[in-house]
Amino acid sequence: MSVNIHIEHLVKKFQDVEALKDISFDVEKGSLFGIIGPDGAGKTTLFRILTSLILADEGKVMVDGIDVVKDYKKLRQIIGYMPGRFSLYMDLTVEENLNFYARIFHTSLSENYDLIKDIYEQIEPFKNRRAGDLSGGMKQKLALSCALIHKPKLLVLDEPTTGVDAVSRKEFWELLKKMQQRGITILVSTPYMDEAALCDRVSLMQTGNLLSVNTPQQIVNNFLGNLLAVKTNNMYTLLSDLERFDGADRVYRFGESIHLVSQRPIDEVKQSLRDFLSIKAYQKIEIENKQPVIEDCFLALMEKTGTL
């Protein structure tokens, strides 16, 4: 029941802003594909073109062999779309919203209950509550249920976890995995770099450009240089001092430590770094080898392409 997506040389301008700068990539049938990028990367524009809500200036998009411009009516039958802004009816109850969306697609809640069961069970205790009175996490689950009500082959989710806390984010991704197991192709965008690791393949986006399209593992494997995590007694001044360290290509804060990227042999860098910090009278110096994660890669790619 799943579909593949083919995107070719997509260009979209809004007056003089180039929202999409010649984007091409494919999404495989049945995969969970992530578009990772900050606000202004072009994620929403891409999704709106793909769901036939706006037209591209150049290029084409095919979903399961359907041209999204010529055959938009067919397309809309097979996709479920969850926009970034909550767009259900605030003054309808949970149940009323679901029934409303079901009827638009000439189906019913009971007909496709099996598909949304896992999600709907979590919001069912509040089925008589108005959508406007739900918490953030619950609203997301209702929106997801509504996007699934007509058994779409492709699910397009625009930043479903923005502004959602870490617990709800985790639960939401578990639900997406379940939907994928039922054969639905999923395209999801997010500004959270850690969610990239949960996708089969991801495209990293920044200001209308694709920085990389690959599996999360391959993106991490392509990281150039050695990565060290550095901690000392004084983390505030450490960053500016490390910026002056000879062997450092890049330094940036990363949670409890500071990450330092170097192209020099790792043991040599570690030793000279330790000396460098000791001379500057730092104490409790900890230097550790570190495996890069997607955020390290994204930072490296941003720097390389100068897309700031």
């Binding site: 990028g37 940036y252 930072l299």
Partner: peptide, 12 residues
Amino acid sequence: EPTGGVDPITRR
């Protein structure tokens, strides 16, 4: 939530 949605460099 001052840094919601911004890129990882700007966030830093």
